[in-house]
Amino acid sequence: MRRQQIGVTTAEVRRRELSRHIRAVGQVKVDETLLTDVNLRMSGWVQELYVDETGQPVKKGQTLFTLYSPELYAAEREYLTALRRTREESADALIELARASEQRLRLLGMSPSQIRQLQRRGEAWEYVPVLSPATGYVIEKDIVEGGRVEAGTRVYRIANLKRIWIDADVFESDLPQIERNQPVRVELPYVPGRTFEGRVDYIYPTIAGQTRTGRIRVALKNPDLLLKPDMYANVEIEVDLGERLAVEDSAVIYTGPRRLVFVDLGDGRLRPQEVEIGVHADGFVEVKEGLQPGDMVVTSGNFLIAAESRIRSATKYWGGSHDSH
């Protein structure tokens, strides 16, 4: 009757399938494997700029700008001269010279199709079209019409956004439960009601010292371009923990370094029992030591029971005497 008055309830300790959801905040990033830089292999002057805005979409093979380069112009003329000489005289040395001249054009950045056009044209271009090497969006631009550019300059960075990354910060204590290819759900505050499904693509090997968080990467397809770089995202990782011995969270009392439960011995008798606990999952906590399947433990009212416990045999579980209470 006394137990009913203070609201004591009990539950059986048993093995159960556990799973938990790890939640983290992430940020949309460009997939680094889908980045392409446009670098110049020779110096020159920009004549006409066709792609003149950051964010502009481009397609592979599209003309980005035209360039006048004395070095490239001289290489074109050298190649055409070598071709004419091989037509007049098919000596091995002349054929090898033509091949070397063609290879030089390739190394300077001319595409095979441009070299074929040059052969048909028979005349060197003063202003050579510079083509986009990839399809995507211009996310960086460092070129203006009429400007001079030096060899090695990165004039564009192009990102293909059909697939993106989300970098999410996860508490250090949660990292051991995360593995590659685990399913992930992503929601964006900017796209209410829409859930994106992905998987853990990579777990970074470092920890942020101040926040004690690790970083994971989620790869997501992005066909509609709803996911844009630098957006924030809510990330949820479902972790299957398998079958484990567990009790309800409410059964465990935290007393400094110790974890206690009250075991129901029957006939109104309760025994405080120290336990070693593991992971928390969906309202349950894993019990590693201290209990056996089938034990009955108090799940509510246990704090009142602890407060009323005055017997000496229980004082060791509370870190000192309570005679003064």
Rank of each mutant, 00 (worst) to 15 (best):
R185I: 04
V191H: 15
R212V: 00
Q210G: 12
V200L: 04
L175D: 00
P192W: 07
R215Q: 12
Q182Y: 05
G198V: 03
R185K: 14
A208Q: 14
G198D: 05
D201T: 07
T206I: 10
V191T: 12
P183F: 04
I207L: 13
G209K: 13
R194C: 04
G198P: 05
Y190S: 15
Y202A: 11
Y202I: 03
I203R: 11
E179W: 08
E197D: 12
G214Q: 04
I207H: 05
Q182E: 04
R185C: 00
Y204E: 10
P176Y: 06
Y202Q: 11
Y190C: 09
G209R: 14
D201R: 13
Y204P: 02
Y202K: 10
E197P: 06
I203L: 15
P205A: 03
I178M: 01
A208E: 15
R199Q: 14
G209P: 11
Q210H: 10
G198F: 02
F196Y: 15
E179R: 14
G193R: 08
P176L: 03
R180E: 13
Y190F: 14
T206Q: 12
R185H: 10
G193S: 07
T211D: 01
E187M: 10
E179Q: 12
R199I: 08
R194Q: 15
V191Y: 13
L188P: 08
Q177S: 13
E187Q: 15
R180V: 12
R199M: 08
E179P: 03
L188G: 07
T211W: 03
F196V: 03
I203M: 06
P189G: 09
R212T: 00
V184W: 01
V186T: 04
F196E: 01
P183Q: 09
N181E: 14
D201M: 08
T213R: 15
Y202L: 10
P192C: 07
E197F: 12
I178D: 01
G193H: 08
A208D: 15
R199S: 11
I178F: 01
R194E: 15
G214Y: 02
R215S: 07
T206N: 11
I216D: 00
T206E: 12
G193W: 07
I178V: 09
E179S: 11
V191Q: 15
Q177A: 12
T195M: 09
N181S: 13
I216Y: 03
